[in-house]
């Protein structure tokens, strides 16, 4: 591999550049759109010569959108709040429920254990609408439609299996000897779990939590079916926004940028955990 020729190096570099352009151009272009007025967006040919404005962002943050039909109230910040609320609460709940369960599946070979683990994992792969459509009828009867509680419960279907399987893999990698030694020294089981096991599995818990947060944030279909406007996260809100605001392309672009910034920032900040989490413990040797 070391004796690669100059030509090959250039070809490799060009190929990598091409790949980066394909995958990064859309984000960059939408970002540029979000800094433009509708007039400059609609120019043909598109040009990079424009004076950047932040009006689209201020309009979204204040909720006052000027459209062709006049001023329009559209509370996109409420969607943002809903996304934070739903993702943070569901990941927190999933961690509280999932980490002990993951520990149980990793440490104890108990009857039903494997069955339960597989059942929980199979939720991850079942088509969402299979349960969502009947659930929407139940939620109506139970009064859970358009509530945070109902949504957070359903979001467990995204977060819990993920956390369970990634964290389980981490616990399995940790030798139980350390735990045994700590136990023999006279500490309770609970103390061993919280003082030894959890700290040792921290990277796995972080990776799982991070990934669960991103999946929860990016989810679209659950809230599309089970929430109306005031509880919808940004993914559904942005689509509704397109229909409502019509041709305010700059603002649509700004809404998209605001919506994707949290997950992209998290991904860049914690990319090491992310890559580990994505491979679900499958490919770490």
């Amino acid at each position: 591999m070391d004796h690669t020729s100059g030509l090959e190096k250039i070809l490799r570099g060009a190929a990598i550049a091409l790949v980066l352009v394909f995958f990064l151009f859309p984000i960059a272009w939408i970002f540029l759109m979000s800094l433009q007025t509708n007039e400059t967006i609609l120019r043909i040919p598109p040009s990079l010569a424009f004076t950047p404005i932040i009006d689209n962002y201020t309009a979204l943050i204040t909720g006052q959108l000027r459209t062709a039909a006049g001023s329009l109230q559209l509370n996109f910040m409420q969607n943002m709040f809903n996304s934070v609320m739903l993702s943070v609460c569901s990941v927190a709940l999933s961690l509280v429920l999932g980490v002990p369960a993951a520990y149980a599946f990793a440490r104890f070979k108990f009857r039903l254990g494997e069955d339960i683990a597989f059942t929980l994992l199979s939720f991850r792969f079942a088509p969402a609408l299979l349960v969502l459509l009947p659930l929407s009828l139940y939620f109506k009867t139970l009064g859970l439609t358009n509530t945070y509680i109902g949504l957070i419960w359903v979001y467990q279907l995204i977060c819990l299996p993920l956390i369970l399987w990634i964290v389980r893999g981490y616990f399995e990698d940790i030798s139980p000897d350390i735990e045994h030694a700590y136990r023999i020294a006279g500490n309770s089981w609970w103390k061993t779990f919280t003082r030894i096991s959890i700290p040792l599995a921290k990277p796995g818990i972080a990776a799982a939590g991070l990934l669960a947060f991103i999946f929860a944030w990016n989810n679209f279909i659950f809230a599309l079916i089970l929430a109306s406007a005031d509880k919808q996260p940004v993914t559904v809100g942005a689509l509704a926004f397109v229909t409502a605001s019509g041709i305010q392309y700059g603002q649509i672009a700004a809404a998209i940028i605001i919506s994707i910034t949290p997950t992209l920032a998290l991904a860049l900040y914690a990319q090491r955990y992310l890559v580990e989490g994505l491979s679900m413990g499958a490919v770490k040797g």
Partner: peptide
């Protein structure tokens, strides 16, 4: 950097491409 599209919500990615 290639992680970024993967971290974009698919529904929002579709909107981005719709604009483009």
């Amino acid at each position: 950097l290639l992680l970024l599209p993967l971290m974009t919500a698919p529904a929002l990615a579709a909107l981005m491409w719709k604009l483009m």
